[in-house]
Design a protein around this nucleic acid. Structure first.
Lengths: 349, 349
DNA sequence: CTGAAAGCGCTTACAG
DNA sequence: CTGAAAGCGCTTACAG
């Protein structure tokens, strides 16, 4: 037992013990066919005992895969990130790979730092949660032949870049249609960052629903946010200060909706009696707030799962069913929206 | 440019190009002192250009460290986990190591699976979020000489096991004292799993506060939960069905408090008018719920940060200031508790 | 400081 | 099927 740890054995040693030549040992180790079954068995036994087999396997597997799948977030700071990560973890747990999580903390510098880390201790593949950015960003990955999948990108990266997204346009449209169906005619939206395609798409869906219903698209009802509670708070106040405020707000994201809630509460306004609010994402908090938030569900965990499955295919050099997968959004009706015709609504001027 | 990728160069090649012997090249690569500065410079240049320097550095660093720090959760499914992970990520981002996250999904089988993964693609160190469990569990880690730190364990693992925790006893006591200071005399607690030292400690703190104030410790006011919203819901209903229900509930954890909120709301009871509720943890949702939750803050992110700093010391074989670090909890007063003397409280029989 | 020489652990045709 | 031989890429005393 002890000596097997004391010093790493060599093929020469094994050859001596097995009473064969070194080349034969080499052949057995490499699973060449031209070895007598008996000899092979004897040598294999020795190799195993002395840890050469294990050492060799490890060396091989290090070549093929590092055992790590990387995941990069712009910020590891929201339920949104967490949910996607959970999906990825779920499918990776069943494989022999581990999940490495990094955040660029919204800094380009740290993103480059990460890219160089990846070179030194390489990755089998990467999942990039990147809602925007040009393809050039992925050059280091290409150079190092690291397969990757982009999550929540709108998919305009061209046919070379596998990506998973959600039907943001449809979601935006569904949210707005729902509010219209409740009788609302004055519907505002607080957007995400204008640079983000997912946000642009939601707003486009909003416009489309309004236009289809023959309602005007009012510029003062389209407020610029950044998906944060703070921008939800600020923009809600802007909307409420309008001479002609909306009766419903499409909050852009659930997190942003939290800020909308707070602004409304600060003014003593009730949800949904005084204002209907609809979110986007359906993160866990959506069902915890009061009233629980009607929202458009974006299947974040499933997006993580699908992206991982795709990546695993890429790693194994198996063909992909589709380079671009778009998962569908769903309306989740809870209690933050009310029909305009319904009772105890205060009259507005 | 091109040929440097086409085939990996050898020392022989470099030696020829540099007009020196192979041993000299070897010496330069290994930074031996006995080489003429000029020769060294020339050879180094060549080594760099042909990627031998890089290859060598990589080989070295693979020996010293894999570049991965592992983190294991019983379940990667709560704000609690997420917050600790964020803390770890924050300090790791500034190093050249990446964070690998795994969950045992509360299954012993998966925990063993993870332990074997760790052997195949080794880890520089691990952070284990393990609220209980005997030291034997860590044997595989010891065997493979992988340093680790345990987070949120009560610290009864002995002086060999570095750990980071919070002052759970003090937190439980503070929560209860606060309720007493508001005039409450009938204070219930919904506990976490009895097997968890952190939960036991909180309950012990609760008892201690009651006893110090000369109040009776009523067994029917101590309800068994498991930190989940569901158990919060169920046990609140049990408490409300008592002939003599409490006027305040110490919810054991913020997540559990969500269930308490729901049960109260389902019965048409108002928080804090009809019932005061205090949580534990101060996860982000605590300030989002209505009314926002008064709670005992457990500095989860900081715990993650401290654990990582400790682990980095262990990895570098530097001494630890202390094997056991206990971070302090704080009372965060928000709006879910009310003084018993205050106004609009309905009279109880 | 530097190289010729010996050696290590392994692989790869080649001959039988 | 197996081994003797040649060879590769590298390291390590040793001599000058």
């Amino acid at each position: 037992m002890k000596q097997s740890f004391s010093k790493r054995s060599t093929m020469t040693e094994i050859a001596a013990k097995a009473g064969v030549s070194i080349p034969t040992v080499s052949r057995v180790l490499h699973q060449r066919p031209d070895v007598a079954p008996e000899t092979r068995k004897r040598v294999e036994q020795l190799l195993e005992e002395h840890g050469l087999l294990q050492r060799h396997a490890k060396k091989l597997s290090r070549k093929e895969h590092s055992g790590i799948v990387d995941m990069l977030f712009p910020g590891f700071d929201s339920m949104y990130s967490f949910e996607i990560a959970r999906g990825v973890e779920e499918v990776l747990a069943r494989t022999d790979r581990r999940l490495a999580i990094s955040s660029t903390h919204h800094s380009l510098e740290l993103e480059q730092h990460w890219m160089s880390k990846i070179q030194n201790s390489p990755s089998d593949g990467a999942i990039l949660v990147l809602a925007h950015g040009e393809p050039r960003r992925f050059d280091p990955l290409h150079r190092h032949n690291i397969p990757f999948v982009v999550v929540d990108h709108a998919g305009e990266l061209g046919p070379d870049t596998p990506s998973v997204g959600a039907t943001n346009w449809l979601g935006g449209r569904t949210a707005t249609e729902y509010l219209i169906s409740l009788g609302h005619r004055q519907i505002a939206v607080i957007t995400g960052p204008t640079t983000l395609p997912c946000s642009q798409d939601r707003v486009a869906g909003y416009r489309s629903a309004l236009e289809t219903a023959g309602l005007p698209v009012r510029p003062d009802y389209i407020c610029l946010g950044d998906f944060s509670p703070d921008s939800g708070y600020t923009q809600t106040n802007v909307l409420l200060d309008l001479s002609d405020p909306p009766t419903a707000i499409f909050a852009g994201s659930d997190e942003q909706a939290n800020g909308v809630y707070r602004a409304l509460r600060d003014r003593g306004l009730s949800i949904p009696d005084d204002m209907s609010v609809i979110g986007f994402d359906d993160v866990p908090t959506a069902s915890i707030v009061t009233p629980d938030l009607t929202t458009i569900r974006q299947p974040l965990r499933e997006m993580g799962r699908v992206a991982t499955t795709m990546l695993l295919h890429l790693i194994n050099e198996e063909p992909l069913d589709s380079v671009r997968v778009e998962l569908t959004t769903n309306l989740i009706v809870r209690n933050s929206c009310q029909s305009l015709n319904d009772a105890n609504r205060k009259e507005r001027p």
